[in-house]
Design a protein around this nucleic acid. Structure first.
Length: 352
DNA sequence: TAGGCCATCTGGTCCT
DNA sequence: AGGACCAGATGGCCTA
């Protein structure tokens, strides 16, 4: 099988980022035929054993149609089971077309996944168009963000505290930690973070321990691209007129759907399905989870803090902007990809 | 140049 | 039969 040259280049990103690309996706009959999307390898890449499925064999048969018969006929494997259908040209074309369609769907699916990741990046506390978080770092930061916010809820810890930032940076790579810290220049004094080897965190978690100074922004970190953000802005509350949550359906970015631009869902409405480890609760609707630090974060259902825009919360800091939100009722299956009002975040971060 | 990240192709599996 | 999802493999791009 010939390995086709693959022409993926930097401009693929432009294609991917454009909505038009997705629209063309289905109709362009796959990149195997388009200059940008040439396949790179045949079915036997990486020494994978080619199966005898119809789909798999069709490509092989394109070059050696009569593989079942050896040069002298003696090597023809005696196959059990249903006899393999003769790969007629029509069948080959059909299977090829099916494969091409499947490739297009797969691309579209992955683009949808990437769109969702982009939405997630936008609501992260250090969104920057120029310094895009990698996929894995986006997920890690999202985890930390949720965790940190839950700690704010549970303990009333100020989001402007060092601990909040430490939680955000936990387990992140050094560049990402720098990025986060560059965004979280809390008040007049830059945040001082401490990032150590994995000592304080759980398995797989990087450790951030107070007392080991490592000032941010780091030497090679220009401030402008990273913007700055007060912690209260991080929680997009200053001057934030929270919209009344009307449409709970997340604006999902499945294939073929436009990028997220839909109704904003409220902050800190931690749904009950967010539970790393659920425990029985005396109150049916309460949720607990064990954080990586071994602490227990205690979640209350959203209606526990569904007060007026100036209302206070049980257990929460009175009058803290984080709680000055209006009525929020989220379905349990709300997704975070529509979670915070991204414009409130980005507007404070000087996204470039 | 090595390593990280990414997009894509591909075949397998499961489900409708 | 066909679609969704997944994981493996590969090569391109970028950066230290």
């Amino acid at each position: 099988m010939m390995t086709k040259p693959f022409g993926k280049s930097g401009d693929m990103n432009d294609l991917v980022s454009s909505l038009g690309w997705l629209e063309e996706d289905g109709s362009s009959q796959d990149g195997d035929e388009s200059p940008e999307m040439r396949g790179r390898h045949g079915p036997n890449v990486g020494g994978r054993v080619h199966s005898c499925t119809e789909l798999g064999s069709e490509d092989m048969d394109e070059e050696d149609d009569d593989e079942e018969v050896g040069p002298n006929g003696e090597n023809a494997p005696k196959r059990r089971g249903p006899k393999k259908k003769k790969m007629t040209t029509a069948r080959k074309e059909r299977f090829r077309a099916r494969r091409i369609k499947a490739n297009a769907r797969e691309r579209s699916r992955m683009h949808g996944l990437n769109d969702a990741l982009d939405n997630l990046r936008r609501v992260m506390p250090c969104y920057s168009k120029t310094q895009k978080l990698s996929k894995i770092e986006t997920l890690r930061l999202a985890r930390n963000y949720i965790w940190a916010l839950s700690e704010v809820l549970e303990s009333g810890q100020s989001p402007e505290s060092l601990g909040f930032v430490e939680m955000l940076c936990k387990g992140l790579s050094q560049p990402t930690s720098n990025l986060v810290a560059g965004c979280l220049q809390l008040g007049p004094t830059p945040v001082i973070l401490n990032k150590l080897e994995d000592k304080s965190g759980g398995p797989g978690m990087g450790g951030v321990v107070a007392g080991h100074p490592l000032s941010y922004p780091s030497p090679g970190l220009p401030s402008p691209p990273y913007g700055s953000l007060e912690a209260s802005h991080l929680l997009h509350m200053k001057g934030y007129k929270a919209p009344v949550y009307e449409n709970p359906s997340p604006n999902e970015c499945s294939s073929g759907t436009p990028p997220y631009d839909g109704p904003l869902t409220p902050p800190l409405s931690i749904s009950s399905n967010f539970a790393l480890k659920q425990e029985p609760s005396p109150h049916e609707s309460e949720r607990n989870f064990t954080s990586h630090s071994g602490q227990h974060a205690h979640f209350l259902p959203s209606h526990h803090y569904t007060n007026s825009t100036t209302g206070s919360l049980p257990g929460g800091p009175q009058g803290h902007p984080i709680f000055q939100t209006s009525r929020y009722e989220l379905p349990l299956d709300v997704t975070f990809d529509s979670f915070p009002p991204s414009h409130l975040v980005t507007s404070q971060m000087g996204t470039i």
